[in-house]
Design a protein around this nucleic acid. Structure first.
Lengths: 250, 250
DNA sequence: TCGAATTTGTGCGTATGTATC
DNA sequence: GGATACATACGCACAAATTCG
């Protein structure tokens, strides 16, 4: 069985993957059932199952109980613009992003006081344990969950001001830049660090994905005169969205 | 066994995940062996194995044959700066990126004439089948593979000029902006669309990863007065690197 | 409407190989 | 070398969903 090279289930998965990417197994077609794979490749039931699992984990196929395993349509991920801050229209990053897509989204949020953990403290340039306002968002695009976000703002900046709660008061939901400007904090810079990892089960539950699916994670920090005034973790399902930056050269 | 709720292996995986993220199973500690899990949770060997596999797929733990399953240190991925184009020093995007890390990398490349496929043609604003120069790169950081890149330049732009081959001639390896400027093509804009997906076996072979590992994919296009003059796919292993953008607000 | 066949999803027990301690 | 523990593999069983006659 294991003579010389890679495990049997990887060999089978590799062969099927090849047929998918080169188009001989186009989207929506059923790939051979477990029994067929077992026969065609001369492997056991377990190997056939493991091979299918590999392809499912890669997001190439989708199992439908009682029916079969089908090649997934690979939707070209929609771009979410993240550069070129637009002051017009009073926008959270979400509204700003949706401007291009000419779609309007909705969101839910909840805020609570918390203490900064080590990571957040470092990003905000404060001491661990300092008080922050933590706000969690779930953004939807046409009803479909598209983006999770957790935001932290030092209470040393917003505490005892009208904008302490991001989603309440006259400037509720207006975005970090506007809210900060209202208390004379002029945001002039932002960094975004884009990474990716398998989504956690909890995240994918909210985003409507399958465990193992890939998410993009953006660590965003807003600065006012070099001082961090807000930082956030943004989680986006990578099979449906990508993030677009437009930069000037020079 | 399956009375009422989710599969047993997800319940076990969830419990172990909880212990990992809340710190009661810190990095480098061994989690219970398959046999121990079987006893503690009252499940079968297979369930314990499936639970471990879930955590491994999420990248939270790492199995070491003959030793145990260990909680992975979650290495803060190093940032690769991608904004703020620096004209100094004559740089490919790679050199540019390494400037911050104060490390110098090496790279291999090979160029060949090719015909634009549908996707590349659309990105370059040309017709499918038009001639392009395709160059593949493998960038290394301190000898370790860190980035794959495939670049396409329309021969309508660079053909019959000294900079037709990116890595040869007096401006070899100097980066798109400098090379284009040498033929009076002034690059003034760049877009980067960042996505992520499970890496293909071929890519991970070159990048030194395991099948299923996540990669970041950047589709970058350089523009001169609105006309695309180069586009590239950049593939980066997401467990080791992330990409950083620094933007001005306003 | 009913029921049989198919297929996936899940779970169990076991065996062998191999790396680590 | 021996004990431990993971990695892969085999075979079997059953539930749930789907398909189809």
């Amino acid at each position: 069985m294991t003579f010389g090279e890679q495990p049997a289930y990887l060999r089978v998965a590799g062969d099927l993957r090849q047929k998918i990417v080169d188009g001989s197994l186009p989207p929506h077609t059923r790939l051979p059932s477990q029994a067929r794979i077992r026969e065609e490749y001369g492997v056991s039931d377990t190997v056939a199952l493991e091979a299918r699992k590999v392809l499912m984990a890669e997001g190439l196929v989708e199992g439908r109980s009682g029916s079969g395993t089908y090649v997934r349509e690979r939707p070209v991920p929609r771009s979410v613009a993240r550069s070129g801050y637009r002051p017009s229209g009073g926008a959270t990053p979400f509204r700003q992003e949706q401007a291009d897509a000419s779609a309007h989204g909705t969101w839910e949020s909840s805020s609570e006081r918390a203490e900064a953990g080590a990571g957040v403290a470092e990003r905000l340039g404060i001491e661990p344990g300092e008080r922050v306002m933590r706000t969690k968002y779930l953004f939807r695009d046409a009803g479909e969950p598209m983006m999770l976000s957790t935001s932290w703002e030092p209470l040393a900046v917003t505490g005892r001001t009208p904008v302490m709660l991001p989603e309440e008061g006259p400037l509720g939901g207006m975005g970090v830049v506007e809210r900060m400007r209202a208390i004379d904090v002029i945001v002039d810079n932002v960094t975004e660090e884009v990474g990716a990892r398998p989504g956690l089960a909890e995240e994918l539950l909210l985003l409507g994905g399958v465990p193992g699916h890939v998410v993009l994670v953006i660590q965003r920090t807003y600065y006012a005169s070099g001082r961090p005034v807000e930082t956030a973790d943004v989680v986006i399902p990578a099979d449906r969205y990508q993030v677009a930056y437009h930069l000037s050269v020079r």
